[in-house]
Each structure stands twice: as structure tokens, then as C-alpha cells.
Nucleic acid binder design. Sequence first.
DNA 1: CTGAAAGCGCTTACAG
DNA 2: CTGAAAGCGCTTACAG
Lengths: 369, 369
Amino acid sequence: MRRSAPTSQDVARLAGVSQSTVSYVLTGSRPISPATRRRVEDAIEKLGYHPNSGARALRSRRSGVIGLMVPEAYGSDAVLMRFVGAVAREAQRFGYDILLVTAQEGARGIHRVVRTGVCEALILMEIGRHDERVAAVVESGLPFVLIGKPVDFPNGSVVDLDFERLGRMVVDRGLELGCENLLLFGEPGHRRHRNDVSRFLLGVEEQSRSTGLNVVLDAGDLPEVPRRARDLAASGGRTAVFGLSGVTEVLFAIAATGALEEPGLQVIALTDEDLAAISPLLATVPRVDPRRVEISERAVRELVRLLREEGATPRVTLVEPEWVQGGASRGSGVGGGGAGGHGSDGTAIEAGGAAEDSGADGTGEIGET
Amino acid sequence: MRRSAPTSQDVARLAGVSQSTVSYVLTGSRPISPATRRRVEDAIEKLGYHPNSGARALRSRRSGVIGLMVPEAYGSDAVLMRFVGAVAREAQRFGYDILLVTAQEGARGIHRVVRTGVCEALILMEIGRHDERVAAVVESGLPFVLIGKPVDFPNGSVVDLDFERLGRMVVDRGLELGCENLLLFGEPGHRRHRNDVSRFLLGVEEQSRSTGLNVVLDAGDLPEVPRRARDLAASGGRTAVFGLSGVTEVLFAIAATGALEEPGLQVIALTDEDLAAISPLLATVPRVDPRRVEISERAVRELVRLLREEGATPRVTLVEPEWVQGGASRGSGVGGGGAGGHGSDGTAIEAGGAAEDSGADGTGEIGET
DNA sequence: CTGAAAGCGCTTACAG
DNA sequence: CTGAAAGCGCTTACAG
């Protein structure tokens, strides 16, 4: 039943060439005549040959495997799998496999996969403000990308949603919709220590200060949100309701039932398009897409760039949130300029030598060199 | 910055032994004197040595990597990540890493990871009724485990929730709560083709037939569920409401807002404990835990058994759903006997040589030999 | 209880 | 444009 897999030796024999020629056809590191190439490719096809990954890794020091360090699941982790799936698919496109490393393993996990050589590059998710893993991955010397931008990060590639801009966008949209208040739920206050939340709040506070929108954090536990919203609207005027974090999507099922469908309330949703499809009523409110698939794919492509481009330097890419419904597309429809700290022309603003690109198309750009 | 990792040669030199002795200490495949072992271990510690995975895999044909074939994300995939995370953590415990293979790759993906030798075993999720991957994985000769039991499966290890029993449990609980109707949502009708749904419906139909509970499928789209439930209760009497699939958890946020809190309605929730924590009101309804972490862990342990036990035969393990709230624990509180097709004493009922264990503790058992 | 040596299947200088 | 050969770092018979 389990015959051992064919080797390049078998392919060479069948094609009538040397074993090294088979290897050269595969790696492309030497010109091969069309006729020879053809014979080798036919033999490969006929035998169903795949190069042994252990031998290849041992010899070339390239395993073809990217380590993905995933955070411990917390609350509703629908969000997490969206990243993981997209990373795996995009890596596949470039011929890489994804190996899971759990956050639980910490810096030791990074050392392990580096030392064993099982991974030739790493993607880390949800880096905290003072995270031992950053030092570990930098020290490892392997190419790496962070999904999720720490507030302060010395040098290295990052791909993340532009949360600060998201904050400004939500404030602007609330104003545009004639609201006097913005009620935030999903515990943004409690989770201020999280990089994404703190950056989001930075944007909200900045933009609300300059525009006069009244912002209320901490709407309380989930079931209390509708009541808090109604109270706020009754006492303080028209109120926009917005929730951050993975909890949001669950919460919007609430909105979908009509609990928040009242004249004085205006829901703004942060949700993936396909999740929106679950609840038809979500189609009626302005939605902003957190672009998780886009971010995951860009993270992989950035890593591939670092792996394949000689002397490539790390890059910070902030992807713009995108209005899907109830606003201009591309995220640039509302107060695009704002009081933002980064330009829209590719200005480098990061310390430590990393360049931040924010292309004219509303997302950071990764240049091909 | 990136000095190359130390080798077993380096360890041997430092410990003053031969390179093979280092290897024997690591593999444990030969008795080593305590003194020598000690010196080797110290050297390993001092150098931070980890054996090169490529070399090890090349020589031993054991990569230490388990492939996990994950389904394409659909709808709310919170559920998926719960499996993936638990599988990764449990594999870690046994010294294995998890490599993601996307369902998108299909049978070709299985051939690839088998032929390259990158995986030495496989876990497959969400096998369909006629799935090309089953033939591929059987033919590969690698040890494998399915998470999710196809209705008909020839021979091989399976770990899954006992969906048939879940069906019976829900019917019994509904009756116990004085209901005359059971409204099922989460599109159980449309998704009848899915293995889990069809097995669940089998249990529901069987038990409702023998008890006279009126079962209604297809409660419609999410937002319509509360109205349908109220209508049913008004015309037909007290109604239990139960939803299958990942959508359930989102839906229960609806219940949590009180949309289903009416005298004639009785919500029964299928949800992980930690998700229940999001919504305090969930604590007030009977909940049944789909035991995803338990299933994932058992899948890994079953695979480890196949990998390490000489001549181990595949085994089918059905994990019992567990009442968490509003019922006896351990799932055996309600109609434990039922009209079920499997005993509670470890009787083998599967065709094709696979044995089904259903231990007295309410879950299938994996014996250590 | 330990060592010297072969060899897993590749990639890549070295040669022609 | 192609081949013969070294060697990546292990594991595991073969020897003592």
C-alpha cells in the first residue's frame, strides 16, 4: 500500500539524464535545453514526483515553510480564522506551507522553529506592547512580518489595518449622519492596552475633539448596549453606535433583529462582507470592512518579498478600512484628509528605518523591484 | 546576527562523546549511562541545540509534522478556529507541529504533503459524503484521523460529536421542558447533505417520532426566527427553539437580547462555554456543549496512538454532547438510553473493522496500551 | 555501554 | 548545455 515515494534518481533514470539535471530543472538555477526539460518534466509527471522536503531543506536551508504564530483564542475568534485561512491560501500561491506555532509557546517557540530549521520565515499575530517574541524573532535573523502594529516598533515589516484612520472615519461618518453622540461598545475602554484598540481610540479622540462629537466609551455588557444607546439618544440627541473587536459581529446580529432600529439611533458596523450576508438587515447600515483577507495576503506577499528580494528592507503597510455600504467606497469618501499623521503619498513616517507606504488607492503599496 | 544553528557534532564535541551518542540520548533508542546522558544534556542546554528537522525527517522518515486539512471558511467560522487551536496545542504536547493544508487543494494537496514527506500523518476536517480526499488519504498509507464522521465510512479513525445523540437529547429536553414543538434553525433543511446535520436530523426524527414532539425545520433567515417562533407558539403551543451549526452562536446573541424571552418559548443553546460568557443571558437557558476542544484533543491523541502503537487499528470515537446548564451534566441526564444504535459499553458497531467506543463516562474512550 | 560509518535525497560548486 | 561528486545533519545498523 505505501510504496516509498519516487526520488529524483528515479526521475533521472526514466528521463535518461543525470540526477543533478532533474534538480536543475526543478530549481531553475541553470539553463536547460527545451528537449531535456521536456523529458524531465514528463518523467516527473508520470511518476508523480515531488522533491523530498527534508532533503531539500537540509541541503538548501530553505524549508518552504512559513511559521504562523497565532494568538490564543479569545472570545469570538471568528476573526482569527479569517486571517489564518487567508494566510494559508496566499502562501500556497507562492509555494509555501504554513506551520502553526501557538502563542502559548512564546519566545521559546520561535527559537524552536528557527533552530530546527522547520520554518524559514515567520508571521506573528497580535504582538503586545512589550512582547518577548519581538526580540526573539529579530534575533533569529529570519525574515518576519507582524500582523497587527504595535504602537512602538523598532524595525521590521508590519501589515495592519489603519486603526487610527478607522477612528477618524467612524467619527466623520457619525457626524455626516447627523449624530451628536458616538457610543462605542466591545469594551474599548477595558482593552485600551491592546495595540489596535488604543490606536483606534487615538483616532476617535483626535477627530472628535476637533469636530465636537460626544464620544461615550464602555457601553457595558452586550445585552445592555441597546438600552444604553436609547438612553443616550433620549437625553443627548441622535447617537451613532459602533463596536470594535470580534465581538462586534455577534453584536450586529442584535442590531439585525431591530433592537437598535430606532429613529434616534444609527448603527455603524465593522464587519467582513461575508458575515454581513448572514443578516440581511446589516445591509441597511453603513459598514466598514476591516479587510482581514487583504491584510493577510499582503502579509504573505511582504514576507515573500523579504525572502526573495536581495537586501529587501522591512516595510510598514497600513491598509485603509473600506466603506462597503452607506458611503463612498475606498474609505476615502469621508474626511479623507482629517487630522491624520500620515500622508497619502508614500511618506515614510516610521522611526527605525521602516517606511510606511500609503498609496493613492487607499491602501499601502508593496512595490515590486 | 544569524549564526548557523549548532549541530549534534557541536554538542558531541562539547560533551566529549561521539555524535551518535548525542543522537541516542535524543531518540532514547539505546540505553545511555547516567553520567554520559548528563554531560550530553548539559551541552545541549548550553548550546541551545535543537536537532535539524530536515535531516531528521530525511533520515528517519518522520517529520514530526501533522497535516491539518481545514475546510474553506464559511459563514461564521468561529467554530473552525476553536478546532484548529486545540489541535495545535494538543499536538504540541506530544511534540508534533501542525501544518495547514487548505481544503482548496483537495486530493492533490494530500498527495503533495505525502510525497514531499513534509507530513507524517494527517487530520482531515469536514469530509463530505463523496469526498475525493478519503481515497487519497487511504491510498497514502499515512496514519490519519477524520474530525467529522461521514455517514458511511469504510475504515479509518474518526472523532466527532455524537450528532445523532444530540438530536435525541434536544428532543428529550424539549419534552421535559413541557414543549409541544421544536423549531430548528440554522438551515438544517438546506444543509441536510452535510454529514453532521443529517446525523443530527436522524436523531431528532427518530426520537420525535417515538415521543410525538412536533418538529419544524427551516425557521427561515436569521431575523425571521423570533417571529416564526412566536407564531408557532401562538398556534401550536409551547415551543423549544434550537439552532445547529456555527450560526447558532451568533443567533444566540439574539436570544440574549430578549427577542426570544417569551412565556411560550424555550431556547435551547448549542454553544461553547466561553462563548456563552459573552452574553450573560445565555446563562439562563439550557445549553449543550459541542465539545470542540475535547474532540480536537482526542483526534490528536488518536493519531499519536496510530503513529506510536505498533499495529494499531483505527477507531471511531463519538463524543457525547454535554449539558452545561439546565440539565444533568455529562449528557446522560436525559433519555440516555433512547432508541440509539450504539451501546454505552464500548460495543463495536462500525462496519469495516473500525471499533466504536462509547465509555461509561459519556465519551468514547481511547485506551492506552 | 559507546563509537565509526553508511546513507537518507536533495542542491550546488567543480569540471567539461 | 550537462554530469559526477561532495556534503547538508541527522538515525541506525554494524562493531566492539
